[in-house]
Design a protein around this nucleic acid. Structure first.
Lengths: 243, 243
DNA sequence: CGACCGTAGTGGTCCGACCAACCTGCTGGT
DNA sequence: ACCAGCAGGTTGGTCGGACCACTACGGTCG
């Protein structure tokens, strides 16, 4: 059964909750360019008065947009529109990785394998000497220590530099979310216990060689294999133990 | 100079804002499995009392988690943990597409090309007769009308069915965000004005043929070309006109 | 001229009240 | 015995105002 369409209204204020409406309105203002990136908004009190709602509701709307990475509130200073760059808008993406379990972890790694391999291929073609030096820095640092914490940190940085060299900020931001610290810490805890350190180092070395040679196909293959290893291990883990 | 440590305190959780702390705590509860998907939480008033904060602050925390797709508030009933599926957690992903402009639109299409081509390849290998029938439904419906709105709707559904058939919910959810209605409406407005209807139909037909033949490589190529066409058109648009 | 400090302005937190939607259970008729 | 319909209680949604914590600006003093 269809709902009664009813309202043809103009102002038609009666939709959703008040807070939801405020969210949409501010989002629309930014979408229409009435609010530029970095610009400061009126005070909470002003905004609330303008949209005819209470400050509490306005604060919830602001909180929502803050979580989305659209706004940024600075205590004592004011509310500002973010730069609206990929990194800002995709900051929340990490919670997916944090809260996922079981089969979905494999799905995440599958997506990461696809994007990471492509990003590494792009990086092989475009990477500059400076960027390559940065990659090498983390590669050697990772091989020089036995502290799992430090290894993990350099591992993350290694892939982050490569993603940055690929030249697609959006892709880099998504990969960042797919590799959130807590996510990798959880998966790698078990993975590394099986003496996967050596293999990881070998794979990183292969990726590095492909970057130096500016060989996209080799880079794609090496990155895909690297992520694929973890993916397969995790897949096996899910089949075997009930946990 | 170090701060005076002072507190040897017990609870002493003096970090970040009160609301931020509440967000982390609830997220942690879910992460640790103390809150199951679908489960109902205590009332706002209870939660606030338990964490020793005001209801206002607790509401902001709940609002934040609602935006992240972790919680769901039902008026008059209570607050519930969502199913924590990819679709829930990635709902906000669409705002990236909505608020992006200029070069970032190209980046988004590049990511979509990579994922969509892979998803279509996977679908070619796995799609069932039922799913294929659904895809065909939208294909024929899209060819049977001239209403841009309807074409767009069936176009979205066409790709959505294919993504679903690929069997990776996470990938499907990301693609959903990359193809948000407002995003495509904006880009396609100009694209279709150049008589791209015929080309779009041809490309969709090619994708469909590959699915029927269960030919992953052909499917990958067809999908990549399909998205790539729009990508190249958009790239040209950005170079030429100042707008 | 520069470091210091006070003050106005702004976001952050709290409280208490009331409104609106939902759910339960009782009521009353069939 | 069954079910429609109506209260009442529970719970999220909104409101207004008060106060706290931090920042930024400008004047003051050394």
């Amino acid at each position: 059964m269809d709902e009664i369409p009813a309202r043809n209204g103009e102002a038609a204020p009666q939709k959703g909750t008040v807070t939801q409406r405020a969210i949409e309105q501010i989002k629309a203002m930014i979408g229409e360019g009435r609010l530029e990136p970095g610009q400061r908004l009126p005070t909470e009190r002003d905004l609330a008065a303008r949209l005819g709602i209470s400050r509490s509701s306005m604060r919830e709307a602001i909180r929502a947009l803050t979580v989305m990475g659209v706004l940024e509130a600075r205590h004592g200073s004011g509310i500002y529109v973010t730069q609206l760059e990929a990194g800002d808008l995709l900051e929340t993406f990490g919670v997916v990785a944090d809260l996922s379990r079981g089969p979905r972890l494999v799905e995440l790694l599958e997506v990461r394998r696809i994007l990471e391999s492509t990003a590494t291929a792009l990086a092989a073609a475009r990477i500059t000497p400076d960027q390559l030096a940065e990659v090498e820095k983390h590669l050697t640092a990772m091989n020089a220590t036995d502290d799992p914490e430090e290894i993990l940190a350099h591992d993350l940085a290694f892939h982050r530099e490569i993603a940055a060299a690929a030249g697609n900020d959006t892709m880099a931001a998504i990969l960042e979310g797919l590799s959130s610290r807590t996510f990798r810490a959880r998966v790698w805890r078990g993975y590394q216990e099986e003496g996967a350190f050596a293999r990881t180092r070998r794979e990183h070395a292969a990726i590095h060689r492909a970057l130096v040679a500016h060989d996209p196909e080799a880079a794609r293959a090496a990155a895909a294999a690297h992520v694929g290893e973890v993916e397969q291990w995790l897949r096996a883990q899910l089949d075997a133990p009930p946990l």
